[in-house]
Design a protein around this nucleic acid. Structure first.
Lengths: 209, 209
DNA sequence: TAGATTGTTAATCGATTAACAATC
DNA sequence: TAGATTGTTAATCGATTAACAATC
């Protein structure tokens, strides 16, 4: 198997194909051109992306919807539920705990961590909130591999260090700070100020024309 | 001026350079290698990015920090305050209203919009909440150009349509849906489930080795 | 001037696109 | 079989990297 290298951009596209497929209950097959139309990518990209992972299609027909759904589910690794630890139960953290969208995609925030005494030992949307000092034990015991960080920039690196030490391998970071992490740990940064600055740049350019 | 094309990836990098520069009060000059070290990019990328916009550096010395800060500020268009309309004042929307980080970067949510009667005509963190039917008038009057969408997927396209009609040109969309928008309107999607699915894929791959 | 670092050019790398042979 | 669409190859496009002449 000469397994070629898969461009990282293909992965979120797979997620979007999957989302489209979820909307199909009835019809048997879907063509790459249809998936392309509904996601905004080109049909060639769709076929290329799927071909990285196997031969899912039937020439002349398209892709069996149920089968493709199942395949993408497995490729993305969302065929089982992922337990998530949330670090930082402030405004954003609280909103994320209550967010229903995660559950639908097989992700479950099982515990929040904070240091603010007013938040501790309560439950938010049925999720327990514990002190940061209990993080290592809890995360290790429950074998949690994914975490979300929603703390201020200053506390971000510390949170990453603790999580990694406790066995977390993937981190979704909302703090406006780029933490360092050892090789083999995936950190995805969602940086709201930077997104807004992209918009500002774009509008600024448009204005100058 | 043969103004070459600027890769979009350069823009968020500029934001990060700017963030690093904010940390410098004292020293006069900073080298590309230093900016590179602190942001994790290569020195060549740093120089390339800056060179797209002008000759900011002095060979043998580096970049004047105060000057470079000022220049990036203008390039990104964050030298003035941007007013932002927020559509959807649920959990996430409320968290965004209270988020201090935006103000620090020159962005200000000036009004929230919702249809839920229990939220209307109140203030959250000093921001008024109005009914969606008042959006067009308000946005047009205040000449708001940027909006944040934090509504369910089903209401996303409608929100985009209304915003664009009212004169909004840049949209940060948190709904798990890719809305269509006319050319010339910039829509940035922050899709939390997709980010988590990227992590799931990554961990799934790592496991298989 | 000697030393250092920028700005830019050419080479490399990687992803997307276009085209079409293979296949149902 | 004829028609349709996949999977894959080659060509194109775009961004990054490496190297170095220009310049303070």
């Amino acid at each position: 198997m000469p397994k070629q290298k898969i461009p990282v951009q293909a992965i979120p596209r797979l997620s979007l194909y999957y989302r489209v497929l979820l909307g199909y209950k009835t019809s048997e097959f879907i063509r790459s051109s249809e998936l392309a139309r509904l996601t905004g990518f080109s049909a060639a990209v769709v076929r290329r992306d799927l071909a990285y992972f196997g031969q899912f299609g039937i020439p002349g027909r398209g892709y069996n919807i149920a089968q493709l759904k199942e395949s993408i589910l497995k490729i993305l690794g969302i065929d089982t539920e992922w337990k998530i630890a949330l670090v930082g139960v402030g405004n954003l953290g609280s909103a994320l705990i209550s967010y229903k969208g995660f559950t639908k995609h097989g992700f479950k925030i099982v515990c929040g961590f904070d240091v603010n005494p007013s938040k501790l030992n309560k439950k938010k949307a049925d999720v327990p909130i514990k002190h940061m000092r209990d993080l290592a034990k809890y995360v290790r015991e429950k074998a949690i591999k994914i975490a979300i960080i929603a703390v201020p920039a200053l506390n971000c690196q510390e949170a990453v260090d603790k999580l990694v030490k406790a066995g977390v391998r993937g981190i979704l970071n909302f703090a406006p700070f780029r933490p360092k992490a050892p090789a083999g740990i995936e950190v995805l940064n969602v940086d709201l100020s930077i997104e807004l600055e992209k918009l500002a740049y774009f509008l600024n350019q448009a204005k100058q024309k």
